[in-house]
Design a protein around this nucleic acid. Structure first.
Lengths: 235, 235
DNA sequence: TACAAATACTGACTCAGATCAATATTTCCC
DNA sequence: GGGAAATATTGATCTGAGTCAGTATTTGTA
């Protein structure tokens, strides 16, 4: 027995999701347009690149990765999305999805039909403002990734990703010190612009140090501050 | 004698700027909130990182670069903005500018006070939609940069930047085959995650090939299709 | 018009991380 | 629970681009 169809109002993810900072009556309006409880199994696709853009999605549980393919078929992992996070935003301007979203583990998502959302955002200025903010945040995070890719060493990139995942767990009230990676070494390497072998070697090396305990996809960070500082020092 | 203070209505950049796809009456409303004609000389700053976020800006003429500094002072060039393009979007979510914008040559900009813009976007749904689209476009372009940085060779990165500048010139009705780079080799390298020396060597090499004629910052592309194809082939 | 400073170029050398080639381990079904 | 496929690790070798060092050219300014 598990809870499905939790309204935004009752959703534990509300403070970090789309419906934060919205008054109760307005919450109700959002609640009416959100399609909840869609479940996707590991490896299944939420949307495909070049399918018509109709909705953005909020992750309710699980983990989703997005990737795009170059004309020659080369894959690029463009992001990892955890509960409370919104995906599909790059599709708005193109009128179609520009990446494919697949579940890394069994996940549930809330679908937010974008046309109706726009109509609502016009009626609720604070919702419009919040959505501007969510998109701006995405742009801001892309700047961080830009720096990571063009200035940081392989080790620093991997540590930065772990710290990011840790912070996102903590934000949901979970442990930031111990978690399981939902993605493969391949995905990590692809996302960070590194070869799988390099990622693997870095995990082995970090595991030998006191900074991290790695066992397959299980990660334990004994001390976040130390890890953060070691990351700083390397840069 | 030169024209200042051209209204959005009369602005030749309208089709590619913020005020595209807006009806004449509504155009008038936008016109009233835009602060026009601010001129900044080469090397002068439009806004500083960590100054309060109040406006986004549209380039009217010239060229602007944005950069951010890491805690240790390391610079990262985050973007180049040409006439008709909007900058400052990453500041929305942070309530302050997260990068510094400086003019690469004498430029004029239009300032769009963001609070008033938000109020207007609520009244004009198509304007809201268009702004969603502009932000989405920025996210989409960041994905392209992500691929460039994590999958492409130094040569391909430089060619991709040239092709992007060329396309942006053409969009304004200018020649896409001949133009002057507003930015230094250093800026190009920094933006693309390459050492200055590498950028310099690539220009020399391209100049020796038939693909490009380079003389300092003057660029001539004899055949765009050939350049585009050579770029594809290398990938 | 000249000269200092900034920018750009070139060459020699080095190295982080890619690639290639196995082997080990985990995961997923039947 | 067993065996195949997918994922992860490890080692040896190679290479694209970085670094260092010096020179050339352009640009802005007096």
């Amino acid at each position: 027995m598990f809870k499905r169809e939790v309204s935004c109002e009752k959703c534990s993810l509300r403070p970090i999701c789309l419906a934060s900072a919205i008054s109760p009556e307005q919450l109700d309006e959002i609640d009416r347009i959100v399609r909840r409880g869609r479940s996707i199994k590991r490896g299944e696709t939420l949307y495909h690149a070049s399918s018509p853009f109709e909705s953005v999605y909020a992750v309710r549980s699980g983990a989703i990765k997005t990737y795009s393919l170059a004309p020659d078929g080369e894959e690029l992992v463009t992001g990892f999305y955890l509960p409370g996070e919104i995906l599909g935003l790059e599709g708005i301007s193109q009128q179609e999805h520009t990446s494919t979203a697949v579940a890394l583990e069994t996940s549930t998502v809330c679908e937010i039909p974008f046309k109706r959302f726009g109509e609502l955002a016009v009626k609720i200025p604070s919702l419009q403002q919040h959505f501007f903010s969510i998109m701006s945040e995405e742009i801001y995070k892309d700047r961080t990734l830009h720096r990571l890719l063009s200035k940081r060493s392989a080790d620093e990139r991997v540590i930065a990703l772990l710290l990011s995942l840790s912070a996102r767990h903590r934000r949901r009230g979970l442990s930031g010190n111990e978690f399981r990676l939902p993605m493969s070494r391949y995905d990590i390497g692809n996302y960070l612009g590194l070869a799988v072998e390099t990622v693997s070697r870095i995990f082995t090396r970090l595991n030998k140090s006191e900074l991290l305990e790695v066992s397959g996809r299980e990660i334990k960070i004994p001390c976040l501050t130390t890890l953060r500082e070691s990351y700083m020092k390397e840069s």
